[in-house]
């Protein structure tokens, strides 16, 4: 069964098209990677799924509901959890409170149940020891973990990960990937994952989508997509141009 369906969504900012009649579906429990050059429309795509952005045309369906025009808070309560590329924790709240508020509002738990859910998620994301710390004091890796903890505490059916591995060292990426894989296996949730660190993706996802100019130019097994000529052109085309430019400069 499809948990998410995008039906010909279109979004333009002035003359820039970030989604061009884009159609996509994600099945329950799927892990789908999203790659593409800068400006391909990856984060905008997430915005239209989570509700931070409204498409100009087309329809977004989630878990049997038409959510195209719904507020982000309603979509979160329906089961869409998201992280932001640049972590945006609630800086005035403690790590525990960041997770607790998501458990209370997103997962709609109360009292002891909400405390237990928040504590459990902090344990799973390796933040248990930092629970009492103000979120403002966290470093980048910890903020990325907290971003993930906050999203997981809303008990999502679909998790949108926006470059959770960006800016981290290799061992940190490995740790984070393990954590996400564990969460997937435990909850059976679907994951849509934007990442520039392709290594992190290929290790985790069973399907890869390549976006360029607001269109899907590759969709299938990760290795197959990365090997396709259209995808190669988008990525390696620019790489070739770079090499040529460097050659000229030399």
């Amino acid at each position: 069964m499809n948990v998410l369906e995008l039906d010909r969504i279109t979004k333009r900012f002035g003359r820039v098209t970030v989604a061009d009649e884009l159609t996509l579906s994600v099945r329950q429990g799927d892990a789908v990677g999203v790659v593409g050059p800068n400006g391909a429309g990856k984060t905008s795509l997430f915005g239209m799924i989570s509700g931070d952005l409204r498409p100009d045309a087309g329809e977004v369906r989630f878990d049997g509901h038409r959510v195209t025009l719904l507020d982000p808070s309603v979509r979160c309560r329906l089961g869409i959890g998201r992280t932001y590329q640049v972590p945006r924790p609630f800086l005035g709240l403690s790590v525990f409170e960041n997770t607790l508020v998501a458990a209370q509002q997103g997962a709609r738990t109360r009292g002891r149940a909400s405390y237990a859910l928040a504590a459990r998620v902090l344990g799973e994301t390796g933040l248990a020891d930092l629970a009492g710390r103000p979120a403002a004091q966290l470093g980048l890796l910890q903020r990325k973990r907290l971003e993930l903890a906050r999203a997981l505490a809303t008990r999502p059916k679909l998790l949108l990960l926006d470059e959770v591995a960006g800016g981290l060292t290799d061992p940190e990426v490995t740790e984070l990937v393990a954590l996400i894989t564990a969460a997937r296996e435990r909850e059976g949730l679907a994951v849509l994952w934007i990442e520039h660190v392709v290594r992190a993706l290929t290790a985790t996802v069973d399907r890869l989508i390549c976006l360029a100019g607001g269109r899907i130019i590759g969709d299938g097994g990760p290795l197959e997509v990365l090997a396709s000529p259209a995808v190669k052109e988008v990525f390696l085309g620019t790489a070739d141009a770079l090499t040529e430019a460097e050659d000229r400069d030399a």
Binding site: S50, G51, D52, D71, P72, S73, C76, R77, R82, Y84, R88, P89, F90, L91, G92, L93, E97, N98, L100, V101, A102, Q104, Q105, G106, A107, R108, R110, R150, T154
Partner: peptide, 25 residues
């Protein structure tokens, strides 16, 4: 209480608040 925690989250970052399920308005 429950309300105050949500209110403090809204005060900190209304965008994250909404995507964490808080009815900001």
């Amino acid at each position: 209480g429950r309300y105050g925690l949500a209110a403090r989250a809204v005060g900190d970052d209304p965008v994250t608040a909404a995507s964490s399920g808080i009815r900001v308005a």
